[in-house]
Design a protein around this nucleic acid. Structure first.
Lengths: 128, 128
DNA sequence: CCTTGACCTTCCAGTCATTGGAACCCTTAC
DNA sequence: GTAAGGGTTCCAATGACTGGAAGGTCAAGG
């Protein structure tokens, strides 16, 4: 299977697939004409990575998860540890963004947004 | 004022301040010895940028906000538009992260996390 | 047989907002 | 004189792609 088919089947752009090969995430075979030749397993792994990325896992997490996925004697505790750590990071980021949102929405509400220059948003950022 | 004092007064690392000068966000004077010489206004602008960055504004947004801040005939509507757009982006990102969190926390809950290989997390990422 | 268009290849550069390090200069105190 | 603790510049790396250039390959149509 050529890269375009693999891209359509996995939902990843060809550029991204080439990048994943470059960093050693996948190792597709090559045809005689030097084209990449993707097996069903390659496509499956690409879709695996795509789903992990959609959950926000880093590339290095994906590498570790893929290795665990291929290790039939893995311990599910190892997978869970990676997922739990990532979940903690997501929750921390949500808290941080919620704080920004609260501050910012209060400022936006307070700003009249007209032709005049007085603005609580700028006032807040200039230190009141 | 040397860069270290400006860093302490603004809460930004010296490296970051040099970077902000490099991209034209600030334009501190230079002493005879080629050291940067920060005025009170420079430090004030740095603190302004630091607060805007803490609210998640991009550097380009900071540039625009700083320009509006210095323009005494600005319209607060222009400030509000930038802030509202950024607020929308934050809210979109929170929704996206909350979705990741929901999916991921369900998977983490479902995973026993023991020495055995069966794992709903990997199962989900491999396409069930 | 030739051309056209849609593929494919590699490599280089850019994104965003820093951060680290190297190599070197300046100032102050002892 | 020298050591500590500033300062300077420039280059390279981060993460995860993405765009573009220059060129090779392949199937179909004239």
């Amino acid at each position: 299977m050529n890269i375009k088919q693999a891209a359509e089947a996995s939902g990843l752009p060809p550029k991204t697939i080439r990048y994943y090969e470059q960093i050693g995430l996948i190792k597709p075979a090559r045809s005689a004409n030097s084209y990449r030749d993707f097996s069903e397993t390659d496509v499956h792994n690409l879709a695996f990575i795509a789903r992990a990325r959609a959950l926000g896992f880093s590339i290095e997490d994906c590498r570790a998860l893929l290795a665990l996925y291929e290790d039939k004697s893995r311990a599910s505790a190892d997978v869970k540890a990676i997922a739990q750590r990532h979940l903690d990071e997501i929750e921390a980021k949500i808290l941080q963004l919620a704080e920004m949102r609260d501050t910012l929405s209060a400022l936006v509400l307070a700003c009249r947004g007209n032709h005049r220059p007085d603005c609580p948003i700028l006032a807040s950022m200039s230190g009141d």
